[in-house]
């Protein structure tokens, strides 16, 4: 399978934060959820992909092409939603349609208008009169209306109520019905991703902690709950993180099957992405 997005050893240093050797790749036709705390480096990574901040080093390929050498062609074929960056809010959806017609060669006015109707967005009212959810929807349909191959979305569901979120997620799944279309979306709403994402990439303090298929994570990883004496018997190589609570130890393990074979501990819980995130960030490392 071809990769539609490939990042190798991306570095970007700021005074108080840095992206360190960020690497991950997204195969064509898939949805990748990019998760991490606020300030973990999600937005910085996305901005570096889009070259709206300059990377210090590293290799980035979008649609199989270098993101700097063929920037213009690549941008014809990607759609973006960024947090708090959009058209000036005194403009209307109709203005956006008029403008984008001349920006993208492949802009589809009919599709854009269909989306406006579908989401009940007024075409002649300034964006500033929109609610937060309406505004997000407008940003998303604007990113979709030129038939992009890759969508890059930074927190596209933040601020949306559950109903709007469902509509938006449906839109994303419609988008990948075409098997050459892919999505990278960052979110701290892990429940969104638990459903639709094929891959999960987890970033913390500017470093990628893991990047795997979601099924692999949810089925193989697990949380073991045990007592102190049991915990002492476990080889530190066999777990990734642990957390000592008042009544028990919580241990994050990478492979439930193997753990079960080796140890006689019965309580292995099914894990959510939230659990994973919390243990990865708050838990102690094994060594």
């Amino acid at each position: 399978m071809k990769n539609i997005l490939e990042v190798k050893n991306l570095n970007k240093k700021y005074d108080n934060f840095e992206l360190k050797d960020v690497s991950f790749s997204l195969p064509e036709g898939m949805i990748m959820g990019f998760i991490g705390e606020n300030g973990a480096g999600k937005t910085t990574t996305i901005k570096a992909l889009l070259n709206i901040i300059k990377k210090d080093s590293g290799e980035i390929q979008l649609l199989g092409r270098d993101h700097l050498k063929e920037e213009k062609q690549i941008k014809e074929e990607i759609g973006v939603v960024l947090d708090d960056m959009f058209f000036p809010e005194i403009l209307t959806a109709r203005d956006i349609n008029r403008i984008m017609k001349d920006v993208y060669k492949t802009w589809d006015s009919n599709l854009f208008n269909q989306y406006l109707e579908k989401f009940l967005l007024p075409s002649n009212k300034p964006i500033k009169t929109f609610s937060k959810g309406m505004r997000k929807k407008l940003e998303i349909i604007t990113a979709l209306a030129h038939h992009p191959k890759l969508l890059i979305l930074d927190e596209p569901t933040s601020g949306l109520d559950p109903i709007a979120r469902t509509e938006v997620l449906d839109l994303f799944q419609d988008f990948i019905q075409n098997e050459t279309c892919s999505i990278l979306l960052s979110s701290h709403m892990t429940t969104d991703l638990e459903h639709i994402a094929d891959y999960i990439t987890f970033i913390n303090q500017g470093k990628i902690l893991l990047s795997k298929t979601k099924d692999e994570i949810l089925e193989q990883y697990g949380i073991v709950k045990c007592r102190e004496e049991e915990f002492q018997k476990i080889d530190p190589k066999d777990y990734i993180r642990y957390k000592k609570n008042k009544y028990q130890y919580e241990i994050l393990i990478e492979n439930q099957q193997e753990f079960k074979k080796k140890y006689d501990i019965k309580t292995i819980d099914k894990m959510t992405l939230d659990d994973l995130m919390i243990l990865m960030i708050k838990g102690e490392k094994s060594c």
């Binding site: 036709g29 898939m30 949805i31 997620l169 449906d170 799944q173 419609d174 990948i176 019905q177 098997e179 459903h195 639709i196 994402a197 094929d198 891959y199 298929t213 979601k214 099924d215």
Partner: peptide, 17 residues
Amino acid sequence: IRNLAKDLRCSVITTKN
């Protein structure tokens, strides 16, 4: 695969598997 993933609201890899 993709249709089923959409209708069941799960990932493509899951239905593919």
